Simulated assay, not measured.
Amino acid sequence: MSKRALAASLLLACLAASTPVLADAPQDIQALIKQGQFTQALERTDQALAGKPRDAQLRFLKGVVLTELNRGNDAIAIFQKLTEDYPELPEPYNNLAVLYAQQRQYDKARNALEMAIRTHPSYATAHENLGDVYARLASQAYDKALALDSSNTSAQNKLALIREMISPTGKNVRPTAPAPVSVAAAPAAPAVTPPPVAKPAPAPVPATPAAPAPTTVAQAAPKAPPVVASPPVPPAPPPAAKPTQKDDPKPAAKPEPRDESAAQSAAITRSVQGWATAWSHKDIKGYLSYYARDFDPPKGLSRKAWEEERGQRLTKPGSIEVALENVQIASVAGDKATVRLRQHYKSANLSTSSNKTLILVRQDGKWLIQQERVGG
C-alpha cells in the first residue's frame, strides 16, 4: 500500500425528490454509515432503490455499504455498472481502484484511475494516485528482478527507494468523520483519509458532481481521490434581436457558434473505453451493445454467427484483460469517425498486443463500432 492510501471519494449532495421518503434517503443512509450501522444502511438503501432503481447516488451508496460489509466483489459489480451507465462520473472509477488495490490487482486499479483521468484530465489527485499505483508496480518488478539476480545493486537501490515511500501494511490511517448533509444546499466534499483496511469512505454520487476536495496525506497504498466536478457549462448566448424596419439594414452580428468538437471527441473516447471495459468484464450484452446495427463482421460471418462466436469466447473460464493505449481520433466527418489505438489483450491462454483501427458511426445518439480491423 502507498504513502497516500487509496480512499473513496466523499461527496455530500442533496438531490430533489418527488416524495419526502426518497428525498431523505441519502441523508439517512449516510447517517447510518457514519454510525457504523452498515446492515441497516444496506436495508435503507435497498428500500430507497425499490422506488428509484436507476438513481446514481443511491446505487453508489450501496456500493460503499457493501464495501464496508467486506463484500468486495458485490461492490465491484455495483461500481462497474455505474461506470457503464454514467461514464462521465469519476467516482465509480475511483472506488473500483480502491477495491482492486485491496485485492492487489494493481493493473486494474491503474486502469480505473486512468479512466477517471480521461473523464476529468485536470483531476490532480487522480494523477498522484496513479503515481502511487505505479510505485507499487515498480516495487513488484524490482522484487522480481532481484529474485532472478540477487547481485543486481541497481535494482536493490531502486527497491530501497520505493520502500521508503510505501508501507508494508498500509494500515496506518483512520478515516475522518463525514460532515453532515445539508438539506438546503450541497456542501463541498470534506477531506478523507483511508480506514485501517484501506476501504473507501462513504460517498454518494450526485447527479451533478461537486468540486473536488484534497485528501489527507497518509502512508502507503494510493487513495481513491475525491470527486472532481465537471466544469460548468456556460449559458448559451441569447439570440440576436431581429431588426425592425426602423433598425439599421445591416444584419445583426451572429453569436459565435459553440465548439462541439471537444464534446464530440470525449463521447467517442468514452464509447471506445466503455467497449474495452465491457470486454474485460466479460459482459456479453454490454460488449455487443457497442456495435452498430450495420457492423461488418470479420471472416464473412453473418451478424448472428459472429455474435454467437463472441459469446462463446467471452464465456470461457478465466479472466480477460483488455487495455487500450494511444487512443487517437484520426478523423471525424459528420456521423462517422476513425479511431486508431494500441490494444493489449490478455486471457488465460493468450497474450497479445496489436494496433487496431475502429470505424465508428453515430446511431441513436451513441458512437458505435461499424468496422473493426487490425492494423492501420
Rank of each mutant, 00 (worst) to 15 (best):
M165I: 05
A207N: 15
T119I: 12
S122W: 03
V183K: 04
M165W: 01
M165V: 05
A189S: 11
V183E: 05
D143C: 03
S154P: 00
T193D: 08
A188L: 13
A177W: 06
E128A: 10
A185T: 09
I117R: 06
A211F: 10
A203C: 13
Y134I: 08
P187V: 01
S151V: 09
I162S: 03
L137P: 05
A138K: 02
K171F: 08
E164N: 07
G131N: 05
L148T: 13
L159H: 03
S167M: 09
L113I: 09
Y142K: 01
M165G: 05
P121D: 12
A116W: 02
D149G: 06
A191E: 08
A124I: 14
A147L: 06
P202V: 14
T153M: 11
A191N: 05
N152L: 12
R118L: 09
S139N: 06
A201E: 02
Y123V: 07
P194W: 00
N157V: 15
K144P: 00
A210K: 10
A138T: 06
S182Y: 02
R163N: 12
R174Q: 09
D107E: 15
A185L: 10
T125V: 11
Q156F: 01
P175F: 02
A189E: 06
T119L: 07
D132E: 11
I166C: 03
A109H: 00
V192H: 03
A185C: 00
E128D: 08
V133I: 15
A179G: 03
A188I: 13
K108N: 15
P190Y: 06
H120L: 11
T208F: 05
A186R: 02
A210M: 13
T193W: 01
L130F: 02
A155P: 07
L130D: 00
V181E: 03
H127K: 10
T176P: 01
S154C: 00
S151I: 04
P200I: 03
Y106I: 02
R174S: 09
K158Q: 07
A141G: 06
N157A: 15
M165K: 08
M165P: 00
K144E: 13
A188T: 14
V181F: 00
R174F: 07
D143N: 13
S122Y: 05
P195R: 05
V181H: 00
T176E: 12
E164H: 00
H120P: 00
I162V: 15
S150L: 09
P121Q: 12
A198Q: 13
E128R: 05
A184Q: 02
K171H: 12
S139I: 08
S122G: 08
P121A: 13
G131A: 01
N152S: 10
Y106T: 03
T119C: 13
D132N: 10
Y106M: 02
V205C: 12
Y142G: 01
N129V: 02
H120N: 12
A177Q: 10
K144N: 11
E128N: 07
M115S: 07
D143H: 07
L113D: 01
V205L: 15
Q140L: 13
S150C: 05
K171S: 15
D149L: 07
Y142M: 03
R163H: 07
D143R: 11
K158N: 08
A112P: 00
T193I: 04
P194C: 08
T176W: 03
A109Q: 01
H120E: 12
A189K: 04
A211M: 07
P200G: 12
N152P: 04
P178L: 15
P190S: 09
R136D: 14
